[in-house]
Amino acid sequence: MLPGLKLGKSSKPARSKEPDESRRKFLKASGMTLGGLVVGGVFGGVLTDSLEKNQAPAPASSKPETSLQDALMFFNQEQFKMTEAAAERIYPVDENGPGAKALGVAFFIDHQLAGPWGYNARDYMMGPFVQAQTTQGEQSRLKRNEMFTLGLEGLKSYCQQKHQKAFTELEGQQQDEVLTAMEKGDKFPMRGVTSSSFFNMLKNLTIEGVYADPLYGGNRNMNGWKMRNFPGNQMSYAQQITKEGLVQIQPKSLQAHMSE
């Protein structure tokens, strides 16, 4: 027999699908005329009445949210605390709402470093490793989670030497000065990674942790989204997209699909 896989039933034209009740309701609500034609679409059940539920969203809350998932896969306690404190300086709590700490960003970073991205699972990692021009991208033999570990090590010894204190013990202002020096690569020694690439990694991870779907451990209670009126996972804007201005919509995360 040939080793090939024939296409399963899922790849048949979608016209063979029957719409279910909620999909009909959706299509009715959105004013789409189908003329008896059963078309496209995959999982009718998800197309619920999101359109009818568009009350004004609740404001973002700064109250920390905890859950049984709040444990570590990668960091030790000190690494976790340092990351949490640094992320909070990058994305601090303010009058708009919570900062990185309350949003669970350090958990997000921990989980990312423990997973395929942290291990460069889908990156080209064969040698030789050669010093690159800036136009050629990162050429490190280290994995991202190794770079991050070494970056935190560099941050720790910088603070010890300069302030004889841990990063977490510094005042906010001092922490900002340390992070600024790290970003600029200003006399900030690190092994295996430059301090500015480590800073960029930390900054990008922080932003991801604030705004990625809560399923990854950050953006607690969708508060990252609520601060900027981003509605997250919505199935359709077909009715709203012609409206003027900013349409306010109660956000939904991917978790909503599990109960539909």
Binding site: S10, S11, F43, R122, Y124, E208, A212, D213, L254, H257
Partner: peptide
């Protein structure tokens, strides 16, 4: 691949930042 695979598709991290659908560079 089929449209059923996109059940959890509205995920910026997975698709836009981690390139779920693209060639595996390893």
């Amino acid at each position: 691949r089929s449209t059923e695979d996109y059940f959890m598709d509205h995920d910026e991290l997975r698709y836009a930042r981690r390139f779920e659908l693209m060639q595996d560079l390893s």
